[in-house]
Nucleic acid binder design. Structure first.
Lengths: 138, 138
DNA sequence: TCCTATATTGGACATTGTCCAAGTCAAGAA
DNA sequence: TTCTTGACTTGGACAATGTCCAATATAGGA
């Protein structure tokens, strides 16, 4: 994740303690925390960090294209640091677990021209819902 | 939409003025109102209707499978009365307009077995984003 | 070290949604 | 038709999530 901080500094970002711990929290695979979760985890390392800074920083990371915003339920948005690899999401309707998944085809290809209503279509989000092994067993 | 009310009455629903106006508001094509919009439109016909009744009724309609909940942005949930026809959504990132779209293939088919992590996958939501003709021109 | 534009903070406020106790009413019974 | 009752509605309090702002602090260049 120091890559990320370097890239951001090159773009004129000030490297503050708050931004550093937020970047650390977002490191890893299959990470999809809500803003509140990021705040709680960041506060573990930097107790005085404010909610506002977390929201500000996450918003900036999204604007810079370093993090993706994901909405899997109608609740809080989640933040996905995996932007290098094109992927979609698989969500367990039992426990809420989220996995990154790679599709074998381009979902844009299955939207026929006559169903585009003249729109210029640029993006697509695909979310699969099901039950994870643990929740299926229960 | 009297179809809907009949079906619901057959299931033991009480037919109240509130439920009637909510059902009327939800009639039509490409309807995707938020709870607040439903409340405002319903209040046009029945001024004393409460927010709580709108939330209650929408929740019941969803539970009964008569209306689908749709989340296209991280904001308010929207309610889609078109459950007869399998479809996905196309959203204008300029003005927020939403269209129902029918895909030419099954999106479940492009999720490979090895990307399912042992989940039992039952549903998929596909949302396309782009600019509608009006917003593209502007 | 000093300066200053930029970042952080706490708290007020906004939006969306849930819950509950009290009052109201739809629809079957008589 | 009128009565009865359990389901429905209501207003308002509360919860969850997110935005905004003025005051304060600080990163990093001069």
């Amino acid at each position: 994740m120091s890559d990320l901080l370097e890239r951001l500094r090159a773009r004129g970002w000030r490297l503050t303690a708050q931004r550093r711990v937020i970047a650390e929290v977002l490191a890893g695979e299959h990470v999809h925390y809500t803003a509140d979760e990021v705040h709680a985890l960041a506060a573990g390392r930097l107790p005085e960090i404010s909610r506002a800074s977390v929201y500000n920083t996450l918003g900036e990371l999204v604007a810079l294209g370093e993090v993706r915003e994901v909405t899997t339920d109608g609740r809080a948005k989640r933040y996905d640091p995996n932007v290098a690899e094109s992927h979609q999401h698989l969500v367990c309707s039992g426990c809420g677990a989220i996995r990154d998944v790679r599709l074998s085809g381009d979902p844009l290809a299955v939207l026929p021209e006559e169903e585009r209503y003249g729109f210029t279509v640029s993006e697509v989000a695909v979310t699969y819902y099901g039950r994870c092994p643990d929740c299926a067993a229960a």
